[in-house]
C-alpha cells in the first residue's frame, strides 16, 4: 500500500471505519456497577494506600532529590567528624556519623551523653 496515502485516502478509510457503529450502554449499567462494588469484597492487599503516594513521589523524582540530600548530609557529617564518632563534637555529629550505627546505639543507651 502506498506509504504516502494522501488526505482523500485517509478520509475514505475514516468514512468506512465509521460504518462500524457504536453501542448504547444498557439502561441498568450504572446499577450493575454499584451492585458489583457492593457485592464483591475489595481485594486484600499487602500494601497500604500510602505506598501509591510513595510511587507517585518516585515517579515525580521528589524522592530521588530527598534521598540525594540525605546522602549528601551523611557524607558531609562523616567528613566533618574526626576519627572516632562524636569525639570533641556535638552529639549530632556522632548521630550522623557514617560509621556509627553502633555509636548512636551506644549513645542512646547512655541517655544521649556521648
Amino acid at each position: 500500500m502506498n506509504r504516502h496515502a494522501g488526505p482523500p485516502d485517509e478520509m475514505k478509510l475514516k468514512r468506512v471505519l465509521r460504518e462500524w457503529r457504536g453501542i448504547e450502554p444498557n439502561a441498568d449499567f450504572a446499577a450493575r456497577v454499584w451492585h458489583r462494588i457492593e457485592a464483591e469484597p475489595a481485594p486484600w492487599r499487602w500494601w497500604p494506600d500510602f505506598v501509591f503516594g510513595l510511587r507517585a513521589a518516585l515517579e515525580s523524582r521528589t524522592a530521588y532529590a530527598a534521598a540525594a540530600v540525605i546522602v549528601a548530609l551523611l557524607w558531609a557529617a562523616t567528613l566533618a567528624a574526626p576519627r572516632g564518632p562524636g569525639r570533641g563534637r556535638p552529639p549530632a555529629f556522632a548521630a550522623l556519623h557514617g560509621q556509627t550505627l553502633t555509636g548512636a546505639y551506644a549513645g542512646l543507651l547512655m541517655g544521649g551523653n556521648l
Partner: peptide, 29 residues
C-alpha cells in the same frame, strides 16, 4: 466494544473498569 468485538463482553469489562476506578481512586494522582 471495539477492542473486544462483543457488546456483552464490553459491558462486562466496563463494569470491571469502573469497579477498579472506584477502588483505586487513591492511586490516581
Amino acid at each position: 466494544y471495539r477492542m473486544l468485538g462483543s457488546a456483552e463482553d464490553a459491558h462486562d469489562a466496563a463494569q470491571e473498569v469502573f469497579v477498579r476506578v472506584y477502588r483505586g481512586a487513591n492511586r490516581f494522582a
